[in-house]
């Protein structure tokens, strides 16, 4: 069992957990994820590791309640334990000094972006970050991202913080004022990554994305997480989760994420009626 050491609310339905998993923490590198299972009958879900603390032997996971498992997880507290935290899985981010790096994070995607941005900065890159959310209260890790970046822009869809609009608007603004980048790292909802990639392709900026397909085992065994990258079919769990964003078939990824939508809703509603949870907000948000 893996003990929850710390829990912190970052926004509505967004929680940060530090969970004790010393071996996972010791060997994890930026870009890697864990498979978490929160109860004996629980499903296995992938969560990218946002940070580690090797002193207390913990991994930091940031979770938004978007489905039954993530909602149930918000009911867990320090002192509780979960049966599975397997990892660190996937290939680490390829971090090297390339010059100027643009880090773009959207919503909960800022969590996996943070260690990559920090790694890029530590490797000697000049890091510019754009982080965005639907509104101010959903924006996470602002301070940490600021520390990891040389400069940072905030965007919100509704203008409650920073620039009103999407992260892509800010990318265009930066390019328009003459900024250039050697690499872009984009993490967030698939549709955001798709839009960012369409834009950086236009400007010829190589772009890495971190994909979040449905997984079961996370070790290359089930093939559930297959994605089309260029002309090849890849397993995100072992070949990724990071890929060349300009080669990814995002439409297929988005479609495949809907495979179990009806059952996910059924499971969530059942959980809601049993636990008396307020589900309207969660159901409205859909799968991140």
């Amino acid at each position: 069992m893996y003990q929850i050491l710390h829990k912190e609310k970052l926004g509505p339905d967004i929680w940060l957990y530090r969970i004790k998993a010393p071996d996972v923490a010791r060997y994890r590198k930026p870009g890697q994820f864990v498979i978490v299972r929160i109860s004996e009958n629980g499903e296995r879900i992938p969560i990218t590791i946002a940070d580690v603390d090797n002193e207390e032997g913990s991994v930091t996971l940031i979770v938004q309640a978007v489905g039954k498992t993530t909602l149930e997880m918000t009911g867990l507290n320090p002192g509780d334990a979960v049966p599975t935290v397997t990892g660190p899985l996937g290939k680490p981010t390829h971090i090297e000094n390339v010059g100027r790096v643009l880090c773009v994070g959207g919503g909960i995607g800022i969590a996996p972006l943070y260690p990559v941005a920090r790694g890029m900065r530590e490797a000697g890159n000049h890091v510019t970050s754009i982080i965005g959310a639907r509104s101010a209260d959903l924006l996470i890790l602002e301070d940490r991202m600021r520390d990891a970046s040389h400069e940072m822009i905030i965007t919100t869809d509704d203008g409650t913080k920073g620039c009103r609009g999407f992260v892509t608007d800010s990318i265009r603004n930066l390019i328009d004022i003459g900024d250039s980048f050697d690499l872009c790292v984009a993490m967030g909802p698939p549709i955001m990554m798709k839009c960012v990639c369409d834009m950086t392709r236009e400007y010829g900026i190589p772009t890495i994305v971190s994909l979040n397909p449905i997984m079961v085992d996370g070790t290359g065994m089930c093939g559930c997480c297959r994605v089309t990258v260029g002309s090849a079919v890849k397993f995100a769990c072992v070949d990724g989760p990071e890929f060349d964003g300009h080669q990814v078939d995002f439409d297929e990824l988005i479609t495949r994420l809907s495979t179990y939508r009806n059952q996910e809703r059924e499971s969530l509603e059942r959980f809601g009626s049993e636990s008396g949870c307020r589900l309207d907000a969660v159901l409205e948000g859909g799968r991140a």
């Binding site: 109860s39 009958n41 079961v216």
Partner: peptide
């Protein structure tokens, strides 16, 4: 592998009493 893992290891046959769909 995916079909059988969901059905067997993850007990999807018992969904939604278990959490893994199939």
């Amino acid at each position: 592998n995916e079909y059988l893992t969901r059905a067997n290891l993850m007990k999807a046959y018992d969904f939604p009493r278990t959490d893994t769909p199939i």
